[in-house]
Amino acid sequence: MAGSVDTEGFKEHHPAHHFKDADHEFFTVKNGMWLFMLQEILFFAPLFVAYFTFKFIYFEDFQYSAAKLDWKLGAVNTVILIVSSFTVVRAVVAAQRGNNEGLIENLIYTIICGFGFMIVKAIEYSSKIADGVLPGAWMNNAALVEAAPQAPLFYSLYFMMTGLHALHVAVGIGLFAWLLLKAKRRELGPKYYTPLEMTGLYWHFVDLVWIYLFPLLYLVG
C-alpha cells in the first residue's frame, strides 16, 4: 500500500464557482481554518488570564484545591488525546493515498478516543459532584471551604475551563462522525479531503489546549 495512490472510485468534487481550481479552494479553506483557530485561542484566553490572576492572588488556596484533583484521570485523558491526534494524522494519510478502508478505520479509532475522553471526564465530574465540589455559589463542601476559602473560585475556573474544552471535544466527535459518513460514501479521496484536513487541524488544537490545561490544573498543585 505504501507509496501507491488509488484515485479511482471516489466521488468527484467540484470546487465552488469563485475558485480557480481545487487547489485554490483547498488553500483558501486552510487559510480560513488557521484564522478560525487564532480566534479560538483568544476565546480561551480570558479564562487563562482569570486563572493566572486569581492563582497569583489566592496562591495557597489554589494550590490546595488543585491538589484535590485526580491527576491520574487527567493523565489518562492526556494519553487518549495524544493517541487520537495520531490516528487523525493516519486518517489524513490514508485519504491522501486513496486507502478508504484505512481512513474509515482510523476515523473510528479517533471517535472511540473522543468518547473515551468524555467518559473519563464524566467519571471525574461525577466524583466532584458527589463530594459537593461545585463551582462558585454551588460549592457544597464545608471542609474544603474551611481549609481553602477561595476553593469555589478555583472550581469555577476548573469547571469552566475543562467544560469549554470538553464542549470542543464533543463538537469534534460530531465532526468525525460526519466525516465517517462521508468516507463511507467514498467522498474523501486523494483529490478532495479538505474537510478531513480541517477537522484534523481543529482536533490538534483541541489536543493542544488540553496539553496546557492538564499541567496547569492538575500537576502544578
Binding site: 480566534q39 484566553a45 462558585g136 455559589a137 469555577s156 469547571f159 469552566m160
Partner: peptide, 20 residues
Amino acid sequence: PVLGLTLALVALERVAGVGI
C-alpha cells in the same frame, strides 16, 4: 472572542454564580 467569553462569564455569573 475575548468579549464573547467575557459576556458568557457574566451570564454564567448570573445563572450559576461562578464568582469570577
